[in-house]
Design a protein around this nucleic acid. Structure first.
Length: 282
DNA sequence: CACCATGTTCCTTG
DNA sequence: CCAAGGAACATGGT
């Protein structure tokens, strides 16, 4: 699930469920996802704490927690990596194969599962400090965005994945934003014109905002089946619907939605890029 | 067996 | 110190 829009949609969902709930038990099944925390430190901090809020920064979740008798919140940082999911599940539901951390919340469990274990759940907040501006906030401005791009000769697509430039854009929405802005992904970042910078700035915001809207409206399997109460995911059969809105990502060989010519796939920085060579100009 | 996958971090090299 | 390129992390799908 993991680019800014998916994290945002899930954060909004969990925000309705978590506040007020107390952590009565902590089961760390994959200590590596706590890095650099030790399981001991992690468990001691969380045990007995109560969720008070939840927000998002880039692709990170910021869980606000409070210890009993304390007036001060502390923050738990979450990241889904490539394959992570976080949801509440029934106490008696069988744990998923790749459960990384399970928090006992009384009536239900908070499950963080992650097939590849690239994600994190940690008290170490240092990763957030180096993030660039939030793309959907007023902190993200064309002028400063353009300034930052000037300092790099890297291909613009690769630059968009740099979380210190702008926080939350990943491999899917980088391709989508460049298609929308009609800019070739190979173009050097420092060679975009001012007009292109503005278009790209705007395209990033549009693409992310539309994805959040889509994720908020698409039928989600919040309730789940009998064994999986509170499970979060797309409702059955909705995966395609959710991906239809992507205009170029994973569409190599298909006709461009604007000109009809085939979408191409290239590899940049060891990752796939999808684009229309006809519509996206260098 | 080969290659691919929504991400980040570490290590080199220049 | 910085920019850039590549490998590593770990598992599963096709």
């Amino acid at each position: 699930m993991p680019e800014l829009p998916e994290v945002e949609v899930l954060a909004r969902h969990l925000q309705r469920l978590l506040p007020g709930k107390t952590i009565r038990g902590v089961d760390v099944r994959r200590p590596k996802v706590l890095r650099p925390d030790s399981p001991d430190h992690f468990c001691r901090a969380l045990l007995g704490a109560k969720f008070t809020g939840l927000s998002r920064r880039g692709k990170y979740f910021l869980f606000q927690l409070r210890r009993p008798k304390s007036r001060e919140d502390f923050t738990l940082l979450g990241h889904l990596g490539m394959t992570g999911r976080m949801y509440l599940a029934r106490k008696n539901a069988p744990l998923p194969k790749h459960a990384a951390v399970v928090l006992d919340l009384g009536r239900e469990n908070f499950i963080y599962e992650d097939t590849r274990y690239f994600g994190r759940l940690t008290l170490d907040l240092s990763a957030v400090a180096s993030l660039g501006p939030e793309p959907l906030s007023d902190d993200f401005q064309p002028a400063s965005f353009g300034q930052a791009l000037k300092r790099s000769a890297q291909a613009i697509k690769v630059k968009l994945l740099d979380q210190s430039l702008v926080a939350g854009v990943g491999n899917i929405y980088a391709s989508e934003a460049l298609f929308r802005a009609r800019i070739a992904p190979q173009r050097a970042a420092n060679r975009l014109t001012a007009a292109q910078v503005k278009n790209l700035w705007s395209a990033i915001r549009t693409v992310l905002a539309e994805a959040i809207d889509c994720g908020s409206t698409v039928p989600l399997n919040f309730a789940g089946g009998a064994d999986n109460l509170f499970y979060f995911g797309l409702a059955a059969g909705m995966e395609d619907y959710y991906e239809e809105r992507l205009l170029v990502y994973d569409r190599a060989g298909q006709g461009c939605s604007v000109c009809g010519r085939p979408i191409k796939r290239i590899v940049q920085a060891a990752r796939s890029t999808f684009f229309c060579p006809h519509c996206q100009k260098k």
